[in-house]
Design a protein around this nucleic acid. Sequence first.
RNA 1: GUCCCCAUCGUCUAGCCUGGUCCAGGACACCGGCCUUUCACGCCGGCAACAGGGGUUCAAAUCCCCUUGGGGACGCCA
Length: 468
Amino acid sequence: MEQIITRFPPSPTGYLHVGGARTAIFNWLYARHMQGKFVLRIEDTDTERSTQASVDAIFEALQWLGIDWDEGPYFQTQRFDIYREYIQKLIDSNQAYYCTCSPEQIDIMRQKAMAAGDKPRYDGSCREKGLDKSDKAVVRFKAPLTGTTVVEDVIKGHMVFQNDELDDFIICRSDGIPTYNFVVVVDDITMNINTVIRGDDHVMNTPKQILLYKALGSPLPTFGHVPMVLGNDRARLSKRHGAMSVTAYRDMGFLPGALINYLVRLGWSHGDQEFFTRDELIDVFNLENIGRSAGIFDLDKLLALNAEHIMAASPGDLVDPLKPFLKKAGIEIEEDDYILQVIETLQPRSKTLEDMAEAALFYYLSDISYEEKAARKFLKPAALEPVKILTEKLAALEDYSHSNLEEVFKAVMDETGLKLGKIAQPVRVALTGRTASPGIFEIIAILGPNRVIPRLKKAIQFIENRES
RNA sequence: GUCCCCAUCGUCUAGCCUGGUCCAGGACACCGGCCUUUCACGCCGGCAACAGGGGUUCAAAUCCCCUUGGGGACGCCA
């Protein structure tokens, strides 16, 4: 079988948003699954809106996601010679023509058509005029007036379009820059793209493009149009739905594998399976199981999936991604045994890396502050005696192993007649400043005597000051 | 307005192609409970859907038609 070649063609008019990322992921996964090729192409023919900053932002997002390409990036603005050649071919074969109608005239045409209950389109005024190239002339494709164009879509199935619904669309602007529908086709032909997976919003372009393939005498690629991602109001995803850009999710503490997992699963399924690693996806991803209906972006589910990915990760793999979040709190870390243990205790209780960093603070801060409610409830006179006894015993203890700590606590329980909970909560507040934390034995073992004893003493003092 | 697409719990979905095993399964969220030194994790249980109407058939979530609803496209943007 022919090698599968897919592509992702973003236009650099902004950052990479989650919808675009999803189609990139689909194309990339399919290419990897089929052991084919994945091509990156930057569609920058809109010179007004394209920016280098956007190009950089797209690369950054793709890299963070771990989506790599085998060919490119190609830039359309560097391929004008090729386009010119193909446009000439169409003109020479009488399949395209120059048109001098002004944008204003065309506006009027559209309004008339609309008023008549028709589809707004160009009326073909210049179609048979045989005009020559001139300053303000655009080039239009001479589309068939009758018949139908059929799109065989691997996702949506068989779609039929009446050719009289299509008009003679512009393939080259008056400034000489070719337009989208044309350059896409020329690029896909010359780059040997045989599988085009793209958003639903392109279905209407497909018959136009098919006509172009035929005019150019090229075989058709396989088309697949994936449904859109909607916001929670069922409208197309946009800024007002919250974060859109891929890197915003990185900055909120999501793991790339979790975002990919979520985005793929939104619109594609593999039985009841919800959790996928990157390699699993490459292994089982296919086009057949892409759904046909649009999906709503649900942050809660992404969050849950991110928690799962955090839990499934090995602590060492989380060190680097976690660094920037700790840094924000002024904490610089390096990969040592301490951070690894810290991460391990936080994995089952973090939905994002931001959560994790926040919860990790007490492990690093030299001077922890107490949450007011926690201190009021637990750092009170009744806790004084057990905490004092515990402090003495811990100061004398050399090996902070789980079993040793358990024995120490048991001894305190015996001496005071208190239950573990009565002792553990004040200690937890003394050590972390809060009422919620990883297991008390765990944190004592990790913190070690150098941090534990001073914190306990500080708590004792706090209680005594409060008494007086 | 015209054209195209879609329609299962609040959300993502399995099932639909190859009708019966589905008084519809899983996941997120939500609500109970268990575990427990806290918070989580985990486990157990609950709530909750085949848009509506017609057909076809012994039998329809599954096939056909209509209605309704939703989305997308109609650019010298991509």
